[in-house]
Amino acid sequence: MNIFRLAGDLSHLLAIILLLIKIWKTRSCAGISGKSQILFAVVYVSRYLDLVTTFISLYNTLMKLVFITSSFATLYLMYVKFKATYDHNHDSFRIEFLLLPCFVLALLINASFTPLEVLWTFSIYLEAVAILPQLFLVSKTGEAESITSHYLFALGSYRALYLLNWIYRYYAEGHYDLIAIFAGAIQTILYCDFFYLYITKVLKGKKLQLPA
């Protein structure tokens, strides 16, 4: 554990908490993509199957449980409790166009061809692109509430901080994982446009509105 890794995990945790707070306080999931949240739930479940096979640390186990539980809690709030506020018409991204290619890629490029390893790899590829329905929704509506922007910033920062963690680990421990690094770089790049808008608009107190 190094400072970048810890900061990344905390940023990830903060993102999830911000999202739950937004939905709970406003009693609404307007502006949030249920498609992205479904993809994140698939990511956590397929990645954390090793919860039942391997014990790494209490921290590791607890964080995995928090990520899985909170992602299902988010889905419950969106699709059951506050279903009426869900932005169904704008959330029209076809997730099979992400799920299928990621699965095929995981079958082709993985560390070893075993069920757990392929599912882990699938989750890494899928996580890289899971935010696309959310970014698509923001681009369709042309704006995002400030708390939604904070959520996206924290969620994007998490993988960017992991990139620093991987650079650090490469030099400090000789540890590297090309699959995670490659996917993490793609994931971070997808947020760049949003990061720019966040820094130039939201941090200056303006609403995140896309140029017409």
Partner: peptide
């Protein structure tokens, strides 16, 4: 391409 499971990262 990678070191394989188990992974210590999240």
């Amino acid at each position: 391409y990678g070191s394989g499971l188990p992974k210590d990262e999240l």
